[in-house]
Amino acid sequence: MAVDIRLPRKRKRGELTSEPRGLVSPGDVITSDTGFMRGHGTYMEDDKLHASVAGVVERVNKLICVQPLKTRYNGEVGDVVVGRITEVGQKRWRVDTNSRLNSILMLSSVNLPGGELRRRSAEDELMMRQYLSEGDLISAEVQSVFSDGALSLHTRSLKYGKLGQGILLKVSPSLVKRRKTHFHNLPCGASVILGNNGYIWISPTVENESSDTAGGFIQNLEPVSEDERGVIARLRNCILGLAEHRLMLYDTSVLYTYETSTKYEIHELLKPDVMEEVIHLARLKLEQEGT
């Protein structure tokens, strides 16, 4: 069997189409105008606004904040996250969502099997482990933020719940673009959940999402065909390539990258030079579309 061996080489910076504007490092003066409100990543000294983290300056009307280049996930109400159960506790589950503190999923925030609406009893507490146990993956939405920064999650809608077969990817949270929906059924034949916390779930598309499927706790464990596996593997390589080249992740960018990658074999996408070319073409296509 032939094996590919490559010598180490100096990491190329990659061609930048234009120098990103607004890059600051701690201590840099953003503005001397006192009319602005200061947001995260800034501090005020001597009537001047300075940056306190290294990142990109963002301005929304009168609010100036600096988004750091790399950070743990800071949750906001309404975000969609993908997480893994780390602990089953009293009336709650602890979920790892790539944030500073583990998030909490309260027993009262999940749908009971059968879709019943009733007060949770002591029996439900004892049956918690049967619903979700350690190591399970779930998709959920952020309900609220506790005072110490921990997130409270809920799976109150039928689109959230335990995840079945698929691939989990971990990328930096700052690469996932905020959109109206994070659940995408891609035309190539797979579904993608782009969690705001940087955890991405790729799974085969289920044909008919019937609404009385026991509230999202039953996993679909039917065997997945080889073509679907191929699609999922290709998507995984594309998303990892996008993440490595620091492009924002959303349904259009993922789809274009998938389309430009079809001329290569799936395993060839793992080579850095091949991936660079694919990403380059995808980037050109995105710019053409004007997104």
């Binding site: 490092s25 701690p26 201590g27 990142g55």
Partner: peptide, 11 residues
């Protein structure tokens, strides 16, 4: 410290 994104007043 820069990589961790901790708020600093200067480098």
């Amino acid at each position: 410290l820069l990589d961790a994104g901790l708020p600093m007043s200067c480098l």
